[in-house]
Simulated assay, not measured.
Amino acid sequence: MSYIRYTFWGLVAVALVVVGLANRELTQLRAMPDQLAAFLGLSPTIELPLFVVLFLGVALGLIIGFLWEWLREHHIRSEARSKSRELERLRREVDRLKDEKHEGQDEVLALLDKAS
């Protein structure tokens, strides 16, 4: 099964290299429109290869999506934590009640009853 995973990631790597080679030309990125840059007197620009811009956009989108999903599922994780604590508390209480029930009885019979 792992060879399928390696084949998939190999194909993804080949596709990324092909996209990178096809989009090597420099692209100028501007932080603000020309009219606003002229009005403020500054024009922050940077030149990067187009494939870098594409890959950074995809990476930024993934990071924002993961963060959004993590925040959205906060209440689910919180509820699961509280249910887990309650379950552990109830297990301890059941064990304590079983020990009280078998107090003063034969140890072997108590162990057999506790195991079932």
Score class of each variant (00 low, 15 high):
96 R>M: 05
10 G>I: 02
20 G>A: 06
84 S>E: 14
113 D>V: 08
44 P>D: 07
36 L>S: 05
91 R>V: 04
114 K>I: 06
1 M>K: 11
74 H>L: 06
36 L>N: 03
19 V>F: 03
98 K>D: 13
54 L>W: 07
103 E>P: 00
4 I>E: 11
7 T>R: 06
72 R>G: 03
23 N>M: 05
28 Q>D: 10
116 S>C: 12
89 R>P: 08
88 E>L: 07
93 E>C: 12
54 L>H: 02
111 L>N: 15
18 V>Q: 04
101 K>C: 01
103 E>T: 01
9 W>F: 02
93 E>R: 03
17 V>A: 12
63 I>R: 10
40 L>P: 08
8 F>Y: 02
25 E>V: 03
101 K>H: 05
66 F>P: 10
61 G>Q: 04
57 G>Q: 04
15 A>Q: 08
65 G>M: 09
115 A>H: 12
76 I>Y: 01
20 G>K: 07
19 V>T: 13
2 S>M: 03
72 R>H: 07
6 Y>G: 14
25 E>W: 09
66 F>K: 08
90 L>P: 13
1 M>Y: 08
110 A>C: 06
27 T>A: 04
25 E>F: 05
112 L>E: 15
62 L>A: 15
41 G>P: 14
109 L>N: 04
58 V>F: 10
62 L>N: 12
70 W>E: 13
5 R>T: 13
9 W>G: 01
84 S>K: 07
59 A>Q: 10
72 R>Q: 13
101 K>P: 02
110 A>M: 06
8 F>L: 03
65 G>T: 11
7 T>D: 07
54 L>Y: 02
3 Y>W: 10
2 S>E: 11
81 R>T: 14
80 A>D: 04
17 V>G: 09
74 H>A: 02
36 L>W: 02
23 N>R: 04
88 E>H: 03
70 W>F: 11
87 L>V: 09
94 V>R: 12
24 R>M: 15
83 K>D: 14
66 F>W: 08
87 L>I: 05
98 K>T: 07
47 E>I: 03
98 K>Y: 06
5 R>D: 15
88 E>N: 13
5 R>N: 11
34 D>C: 01
44 P>S: 11
14 V>M: 07
71 L>S: 10
